[in-house]
C-alpha cells in the first residue's frame, strides 16, 4: 500500500494531490472496509464515505503552517442552514475540521437533525472553553462522529454566564456524564438534564475550577476544613 504522509485525516477534508491515493476507508485491498454501518460492513457505505472528500476545496499543503480558520460551505452546511436558518452561524474549517457555530437555544433540534438526518450517530464529547473577556464567555463544544460516513463534525455555541443550554441527553444518552462534568467544572447549566449534579468534585464544593478566573492554587478551603479536618490542602 502506498504510504501516506499525513498522520491523520479528518474527512470531509482531504489534502489536494492525494486523489490518486486510495482512501484508507474506501477499501484498499489489505484493509478491512470502513466505515461500517452498524453490525455489518456494507460496501455502499464505504463508497459513500469517499464522496464528501471530493466536495472539499483545496487547502494548503500539510507541512506548512496550518491555515487560519476559513469559511466553509458544503451540502451538509446548506441543508442545516436551510432547515435552521439563523440558528446556524458561521461555519469554518480549521486544520481540516469543520466547526459549526450554532445558537445555543436551538442545540437540541440541531443535534437531533445531525443524529437522524445527517447520521452523526455518536456524540464523542461535550466540553466547554472559557473566554472570560468575551461577552458570551463560554464556548460549548459538541464533538460529533458519524460511523456511517466516517466524518467528524463540531458544533459550538457561545453562551453567557448564567445562561442555560438545552441538554442533549434526550438525543444521546451518553451526554449525561460529560454535561455533568461541564456543569461541575464550568458551572454551565444544561436544561432538561435528568440529573445535573457535580460529578468529579464533591457535591458541596464551591466554585468551578476550569473557569479562567479560578486560580490553579485556589480551592474550597471551607470544604477542605470541614471534610478533611485540615486547614488547607496545599
Amino acid at each position: 500500500m502506498v504510504k501516506r504522509g499525513g498522520n491523520d485525516e479528518d474527512p470531509p477534508e482531504k489534502r489536494p494531490g492525494d486523489e490518486s491515493v486510495p482512501d484508507a476507508s474506501s477499501g484498499a485491498s489489505n484493509v478491512l472496509q470502513f466505515p461500517t454501518s452498524l453490525k455489518k460492513v456494507e460496501p455502499e457505505a464505504a463508497a459513500e464515505a469517499a464522496k464528501p472528500a471530493r466536495r472539499v476545496p483545496g487547502s494548503a499543503p500539510a507541512r506548512e503552517a496550518p491555515p487560519a480558520p476559513a469559511p466553509f460551505d458544503n451540502e451538509l452546511v446548506q441543508r442545516l442552514r436551510a432547515r435552521f436558518g439563523d440558528a446556524i452561524g458561521e461555519v469554518t474549517i480549521d486544520r481540516k475540521q469543520v466547526i459549526v457555530i450554532v445558537d445555543a437555544s436551538h442545540v437540541r433540534e440541531i443535534a437531533l437533525a445531525c443524529r437522524d438526518d445527517e447520521k452523526f450517530e455518536m456524540l464523542v464529547d461535550v466540553t466547554a472553553v472559557d473566554w472570560p473577556r468575551r461577552e458570551r464567555r463560554f464556548d460549548i463544544v459538541w464533538n460529533l462522529y458519524s460511523l456511517t460516513k466516517n466524518e467528524r463534525l463540531r458544533l459550538k455555541a457561545h453562551v453567557t454566564v448564567g445562561a442555560t443550554v438545552p441538554s442533549v441527553t434526550s438525543v444521546w444518552v451518553g451526554a449525561n456524564w460529560p454535561e455533568r462534568e461541564c456543569f461541575d467544572l464550568f458551572g454551565i447549566v444544561f436544561e432538561g438534564h435528568p440529573d445535573l449534579r457535580r460529578i468529579l468534585l464533591p457535591e458541596e464544593w464551591q466554585g468551578h475550577p476550569l473557569r479562567k478566573d479560578y486560580d490553579i492554587l485556589k480551592q474550597d478551603t471551607e470544604w477542605v476544613r470541614e471534610h478533611l479536618g485540615i486547614e488547607s490542602g496545599q
Binding site: D8, E9, A24, N150
Partner: peptide, 12 residues
Amino acid sequence: GVQWDLRKAQPY
C-alpha cells in the same frame, strides 16, 4: 457488533 476502530477508520 460495531466494527469500528480508529486505527482503520482514521489511521494515525
